[in-house]
Design a protein around this nucleic acid. Structure first.
Lengths: 232, 232
DNA sequence: CTGGCGAAGTGGTCTGACCAAGCATGGGGG
DNA sequence: CCCCCATGCTTGGTCAGACCACTTCGCCAG
């Protein structure tokens, strides 16, 4: 391992991560006690704690007060109940991400309505039809992904490098935040919010009709609606 | 913050995250020293360290040994490197940057009108007065910088981490483009466009008056006007 | 067998100290 | 006059030991 990890914590993290990934410690197993690890590795407990915390923030382990740290099952996360605490960020961040989406998707729709190529219009139609077809019977995760695919298609149709760039950054880097918002809404209302379908249709129609202002308004309203569910 | 965070670290994290997202600390700013925070919050430095580390693992801050912790720009990486030479890029890029500004500064003004602190309102007044005072007799470069300073002040007053992040990226990375637009306008009309002053005043007044919708409209119109000069 | 209780073990936090790396300042050399 | 670097202050990194809060588990009384 040619690693030249700088810092004791980083070295410890590498060491433990290897053990975890290599299966010396399998999901459900408990990690050694912090005091034991400190002595074993010849470092202070504070260092061990930071290392364990790093692993926790990466989702590799879970720590219980008085109960030790346990290796996680990596596939269990992302299940229907993602337990928003780590995955979704603070309420405030969720709010800000949605505000950003509101402005961004409004502009994306605006430009898409004016500049989408025939091929892009067709792709959008296809995606919209597919989205509409399956409707329910999908996991929240798949719904969120389908939703972002739809909006990303519109962003791409804007033929606006900066809009596309920002969309990519937002949709990938903050996917878990967006997902958490949708997930939270679903858990509260019990089902897919009734307005969403109609809103998607309105955006879709406006873009295809080439009515830019209407598309912008529709897109903004769509996000505003979702955002509103959040604060309610 | 109606949070019922369990654990001192979690409380501290919430507190700091709030400050970051709300813009009390904007990208590029340094966080207080760990010792200072420990004293300020009445906790030990170990607790502060864990909290800072949490923020770091969420990508909100970056920590440097001996150099403090700084608030990150959430959108910096992942954005295209423009490689804009002195010329100011293609007409198309100029157009797109200005379109981005139109959307961004509209939202920035909107939020600034609602959330600017008294200190920020005063700073904005000062900057506006200074801007107005010198008027002519400045180089184009200084004018462009003053213009961006004015708009950056508004962005900072939005207390919106994502808006600030995007503004920073746009204003620094695409400064040459923005400069080229202004430069081109000046060369064509021979002087500072007549509408600009009044537009700045309108934005300024709307923000200070706390009229969010009006501020958004004014900011959008301002950029739209400049953009129009471009294509004419 | 059951229920409660307490000891032992674990993570959470505090304190204070020292080490290491950045940074500002000022003096010396060019 | 300017540039460079030595040095001291500031900042984060690590350490050691202590105490508190929570969980676990086994012992003992009922």
């Amino acid at each position: 391992m040619g690693e030249a990890a700088t810092g004791l914590v980083a070295q410890l993290v590498d060491e433990l991560e290897r053990k975890l990934l290599f299966g010396d410690i399998i999901p459900g197993d408990k990690l050694p006690a912090q005091r034991a690890m400190a002595q074993g590795f010849g470092v202070s407990r504070a260092t061990v704690r930071e290392a364990v915390f790093t692993l926790e923030s990466r989702g590799l382990v879970e720590t219980f007060h008085g109960g030790g740290s346990v290796c996680c099952n990596l596939l269990e996360s992302g299940y229907p109940e993602p337990e928003v605490k780590e995955g979704g960020g603070s309420r405030e961040l969720q709010q800000q991400v949605m505000e950003m989406r509101e402005m961004l998707e409004g502009e994306a729709a605006y430009f898409a309505a004016r500049r989408a190529t025939p091929a892009q219009r067709e792709a959008l139609s296809l995606e919209y039809a597919r989205m509409r077809e399956r409707g329910s019977g999908e996991t929240t995760l798949r719904k969120a992904k389908a939703d972002l695919t739809f909006h990303m298609l519109i962003a791409e149709s804007s033929h606006h490098l900066l809009v596309v760039s920002l969309s990519q950054v937002l949709y990938t880097r903050y996917f878990n935040v967006i997902y958490a918002v949708l997930s939270r809404t679903l858990r509260k209302t019990g089902r897919y919010p009734p307005g969403i379908g109609a809103q998607h249709e309105e955006i879709y129609r406006a873009v295809l009709a080439g009515e830019a202002e209407r598309a912008r308004r529709a897109a903004r309203e769509h996000i505003a609606y979702t955002r509103q569910q959040l604060s309610a």
